[in-house]
Each structure stands twice: as C-alpha cells, then as structure tokens.
Design a protein around this nucleic acid. Structure first.
Lengths: 151, 151
DNA sequence: TATTGTTATACTCTATAACTATA
DNA sequence: TATAGTTATAGAGTATAACAATA
C-alpha cells in the first residue's frame, strides 16, 4: 500500500464494485462463452452471427430477411451483406416468397443443412464445456433467470 | 402453415433452439441491461465503457492504463484515446507513477468524483429496475452462477 | 531485452439516407 | 401510403505495427 500523503498506486485491482452489477457479470459471462464459441466455430468458417442466422433459417425454412432482422437485432442493410456472403458460400438460397411478392424466403442448401447439423452438435458440446463448473440444475436455473430479465 | 410440396414460409419464428444456449441468453440479457444502462447514463454523458473505466479509477486511485486494459479487455492504443477524452472533460488526471517511471497513475478529479458518486447511485437504481422481475434471492443466485462461468 | 504509453492506421461492425418494387 | 429488399456510405468500435522512454 502507498503511504498517506503520497501519490497512491495500485498493486491488485479491486473490481468488487463492478462485480455487484448484473449487467457487468452477464456481459463478462457472455464474452467468455462467445469467445469459446468463436474459436470452436472457426473450423466451420462461421462467426457467431453467421451461426445464429443459419440456425434460425435451419429451424424456420422460408423465413424472410425482415424476420431474421427483428429477432437478431440486426439492421436490414447489414443483413443483406451477410446473406450475400452466405449465398456466395452456397449455404443459403433465396427463393420468392409464396404469398408476398416483395419478400424473399430463405432456405438452407443441402451443404448448409449438413454444416448446421455438425455446427449445432459442436455448439451443444461447447455449451457443456463452457458451463462445466455448473450442475445441470444450476445451468437450467441460470437460463431461466436470464430469460426472466430480457423476455 | 404452408402445405406440403410447396415452398414453405414462416408465420411465427421458432427461436427455441437458440434459447437453449447459455451464450445466447447471457448475451440477450446483457444487451437488455446495458441498453437501459446507456439510456440512463446519457444524462451524465457517459457510455458504458466510460462508466467502467471511471468506476475502476474511482475505487483504485492511482491505477495504471495497463491495469485498466487487462481488467476491462480493452487494447492499450484504444485506452489512450478514451483517457484523452476523459481528461479533456476534466474527469480524470494523469500523474507520474511513484515507483515506475514508465507508467502514469490515473486519478479522478473533484469533478470526476462527484460525477461518479451520482452515476454509481443511478447505476444501482437501474440494476434494481432492470432485474425487477427477480427476487433478491434470484438476483444473488444469478450473479453467483454468472461468476462461476467466467471467473 | 521487456514493458508502458503513445501515434498512426487498417479493419470490422453498426447506423443512416435514399432508391425500387410490390402491397 | 407503407413495407421488403437493396445500395452506398458514414460513423463507431476494435485490432495491428511501429516508436520513444524507462525498467
């Protein structure tokens, strides 16, 4: 510790105040899990946001760009660029929407489907690894409490 | 629902798969809380990252730039720009480090201190509001489980 | 030789305005 | 008139390389 009346300095940083905040802890936990996620998804050449988009298309064949945007909090112009990339990689294809001539329905290609089956299996394994210090009950409790905040 | 053999479309988006993932839920909860945080801190003309930096300096007088960087996951060149801004606003001042001639110790000005007393009180109130659907016990459990993931 | 702070710069991500075609 | 998709572009945030001063 620095003596009184002199310019103080810090040996070990005290983060106890920030650690009382839910937002701080949720952000750090999210960054930790997502950091692992990014590493693991690099094998599939997918970013976190690519995974989210492809996963929603996977489980919602024919979803529109607009629906993706509102559920993932992505702006329409940025979604266009992302979908162009995924289409270029032959993972996604755009088809005309059967009911609305303005819209386009999004679908996974065969390549996209087999990729996502693998990627979602890897994601499950990763989730288990990232939360390995939690019991199954704790993990369920955590997810339940997090949903209570934002839903 | 779309009939068989025709191009399918989506009426209500199914997000149940993504919602099983801790990372997805932690990120959404963090974005919700931090979104409220940003709104409330706008009165003080502070971004989330400014609050974190000022709070760490507040509770660690004399902390170095490098120590801030490692605890907040910010790169040194970007921290310099941030600290220049906070110094220009007369919230922070840099003093020579008493032991290491290369380093500079960071300190809140009187203005910075009174701002942070107010801002931290507002942050506490905001935390309570953002997690109002949780009981005190649930809130403590949530923080404990989040820490178990990243610490 | 390694570390702290710094400058300059590149890159990615996010946001805004405006256009087109369909409803 | 409003909405879905798109283009172009601006701005914020993040990352890399290189340098001076000090350890």
């Amino acid at each position: 510790m620095a003596a009184k009346d002199e310019t103080p300095y810090v040996e070990t940083v005290d983060t106890s105040y920030l650690e009382t905040l839910v937002g701080y802890n949720a952000r750090r936990a999210a960054l930790f899990v997502i950091g692992n996620f990014m590493e693991r998804m690099a094998v599939f050449d997918l970013r976190t946001v690519d995974f989210s988009v492809l996963s929603l298309i996977h489980h919602n064949a024919g979803i529109t760009s607009r629906q993706l945007c509102s559920h993932l909090n992505i702006l329409a112009p940025n979604m266009v660029v992302m979908l162009n990339g995924l289409e270029r990689k032959k993972l996604v294809e755009r088809r005309p929407h059967p009911l609305d001539g303005r819209a386009t329905g999004l679908h996974l290609t065969a390549k996209g489907q087999s990729l996502m089956v693998e990627a979602e299996a890897a994601a499950y394994q990763l989730e288990m690894d990232s939360t390995s210090r939690l019991t199954t009950t704790e993990r369920n409790t955590l997810v339940r409490l997090l949903k209570k905040i934002y839903k």
